[in-house]
């Protein structure tokens, strides 16, 4: 059993190393934002599309022409024009399409490495039209389950070292009691 758990712990660790590193580092970026400033490269483009399209058709036409790639978000209409975002982790195209003339203007921002990591960190769910975003979400789910299994297997491996049980028990107790009481107090204070 010890050998199995040790291999499980190793397999989870090497298997999720890169995704775990993404989450660990992006968490640091999120906490210490001023140290890791967000920036983006901006570019502008215009396209002539068919007239009279709705937002979905206009976005699809832009994607098929290679001018943008991602999923459609935030459709809104103002002053006779359609505005929407074509988004994927790290890149966003703010698009304005005029159905009357068929003209579309894209203001594309390509975010830097830190901001892309943050967007991957918060990316979730399998509802994305952009398939890679679903795959990143699947990796997030995997590493979340992996964290729980790493923790459980790690505790087993610790327990199988009798000399470490005393100090380990103290650390587990401290590492549970303090945050649990803090969370409990916060939960009770709500409302």
């Amino acid at each position: 059993m010890f050998r199995l758990m040790r291999n499980v712990h190793l397999a989870l660790g090497v298997g999720f190393f890169f995704v775990a590193l993404l989450f660990a580092f992006s968490s640091i970026v999120l906490i210490y934002r001023p140290w890791f400033p967000s920036s983006s490269e901006r570019s502008h483009a215009t396209a002539q599309l068919e007239r009279g399209l709705d937002a979905r058709a206009a976005a699809l036409a832009l994607m098929r022409s290679g001018m943008a790639e991602g999923e459609l978000r935030n459709i809104r209409e103002s002053e006779g024009k359609l505005r929407f975002l074509i988004w994927r982790p790290g890149t966003q195209a703010d698009t304005v399409y005029a159905p009357e003339t068929g003209e579309a203007t894209l203001d594309t921002r390509r975010y830097n490495f830190y901001e892309t990591l943050v967007q991957l960190h918060v990316n979730h769910g399998f509802f994305h039209d952009f398939m890679p975003a679903n795959l990143w979400a699947l990796l997030s789910l995997g590493v979340s389950v992996g964290l729980l299994l790493l923790g459980a297997s790690g505790i087993y491996l610790w327990y199988r070292h009798p000399k470490e049980r005393r100090i380990g028990t103290a650390l587990i107790a401290l590492g549970f009691a303090v945050p649990a009481v803090a969370l409990f107090a916060t939960r009770l204070s709500g409302g």
């Binding site: 399998f126 979400a137 979340s144 923790g151 505790i155 650390l171 969370l183």
Partner: peptide, 25 residues
């Protein structure tokens, strides 16, 4: 090992959060 034992509760919170995120709208 010691770091893991001490931060085990955080791992549980993060793991539950990540699984819960799948079901967010």
């Amino acid at each position: 090992m010691y770091a893991g034992l001490l931060t085990f509760t955080a791992f549980v919170v993060w793991g539950v959060t990540g699984i819960h995120a799948v079901f967010l709208p």
